[in-house]
Amino acid sequence: MTEKYGFAVNGRPVSVECDGTAPLLSVLREYLGLRGSKFGCGTEQCGACMVLIDGKPEYSCSREVSTVAGRDVTTVEGLAKDGGLHPLQQALLDEQAGQCGYCLSGILVSAAALLEKNPKPSRAEIIAALDPHLCRCGIHNRVIRAVQKAGAALAETAR
């Protein structure tokens, strides 16, 4: 059954006409052309598809689009503001925290949500926030360092 669903993606209102049971990830990639969020498993087990819904990290691979009507969705494409990089993106580059990079889109949004609440997270807090994310290449420690650095950079600009 196709119906119209309205919500905001990266601050822009969108409206899609589709089957309400379609996963949000499919809607983002196929209907809205936002291919930053990745398919990894489809079963909430790897975090490649992570997006923020009203600021909270949620898996988009199994999330029915009808349930996000009227809500605010943020994807990796929405992190960079005013054409610049988000401090987390910059920190990942500074730490060269990537091998294949397939896990990064999801990790970025979870880390952004963490820093929003807690700009000075400990190693343990970062690990807890990123534990839903799998990375097969083994960049975990670099990511942790990058999140700490980005937190420090954010705190700096906030002052």
Binding site: S37, E77, Q89, L92, L93, G98, G101, L108
Partner: peptide, 20 residues
């Protein structure tokens, strides 16, 4: 020399999966 492919990847792009 920083990885040449990473800037695209931190922006969520650069994969075969994203070719449309």
């Amino acid at each position: 020399l920083p990885r040449l492919d990473l800037p695209a990847k931190v922006a969520g792009a650069g994969f075969i999966h994203d070719i449309a």
